[in-house]
């Protein structure tokens, strides 16, 4: 009961309804419902961090695919121009670089999109801002 301090504050202050503001709890509940936005969105936010398996399969194929594409282009360029094997060699090299680039980009994006939760151990003095990238 908060009557004692009320009585102290102003003599004979109106006591109001017992137990303080009766709608205070309601207020909190409405706010919670708003904040949760629990309608429609079933907390199924796609995990921006793919799981380990997905990451691995992404990075691997991105690398191989670039070499394959480079090789194909080189092979057909050689066929067309009769310059075997120079274009093949050059384009496989280009493909290799492109593959590395793919992997680096994908990894950078994964890092940038990784969800940083407050309880994660980010090492000493790690700030949340670091996660935003760009």
């Amino acid at each position: 009961m908060t009557n004692s301090d009320k009585n102290g504050a102003g003599k004979d202050a109106p006591k109001g309804l017992a137990g303080g503001v009766p709608t205070g709890d309601l207020d909190a509940r409405i706010r919670a419902a708003r904040q949760k936005g629990g309608y429609g969105e079933y907390q199924t936010k796609p995990k921006e961090h793919l799981s380990g398996h997905a990451k691995a399969s992404r990075l691997g194929t991105e690398f191989i695919a670039a070499i394959l594409v480079g090789g194909f282009i080189g092979y057909f360029a050689d066929m067309a121009m009769g310059t075997t094997p120079w274009f093949l060699l050059v384009m496989v090299l280009v493909g290799f670089v492109a593959g590395v680039l793919n992997v680096v980009r994908a990894a950078a994006r994964m890092n940038a999109e990784a969800i940083i939760t407050p309880d994660m151990d980010l090492g000493p003095k790690a700030h949340r801002d670091d996660a935003d990238g760009k």
Binding site: A13, P14, G16, L17, V21, P22, L26, D27, I30
Partner: peptide, 21 residues
Amino acid sequence: EAERLKQKTDQAIKSYEAELA
């Protein structure tokens, strides 16, 4: 609607208390 009703209730309580005082 809940918010509105809640505010109305609060107001009623307030005016009741003011009147009481």
